[in-house]
Amino acid sequence: TAGNNILQLGPCRVSMSMAEIRSGFNSIKANIQARDPIKSLSILSYPHSLHKVKPSERCCITHHLCSFYVAKVFRHCRTEDSYVNRKISSIANSFLSLRRNLQHCHEQNKCMCGQESTEKLKQITVNYEGLNVTSAAIKSLGELGILLDWME
């Protein structure tokens, strides 16, 4: 589809509407980040940046973070602003289709998880559960740029 990127994650190759997700996120980024007053904690980057993850573990992390955002972030980010809500659901839809594509890779054993990614995903869950659900979800959504930068 026009505007789709091909993400090559080791043996797993999936297409993703990165430009559409980026543009959606850019249009709500300031609004969402302004709702997150906690500057001293990052869900995705504490204690280590995603950029420290080995290339061989990228598919597993992408797959599980995609599921994390679908299951624990987008649904807890309803705001009083219908424009923001529409953009969030559009991003969520893009993540749903990406998760489906990644699930196929997983089922074909092309998206294996090693110890490093398991630990990183556990840390992200700990960071998330260290806040109340709404704050954690809003913070995670505000960090979507970190995930997109890393995925590219």
Binding site: N5, M18, A19, R22, N26, L148, D149, E152
Partner: peptide
């Protein structure tokens, strides 16, 4: 002109 598709 320079154009970067993602990020935009």
């Amino acid at each position: 002109q320079i154009r970067v598709t993602t990020p935009l």
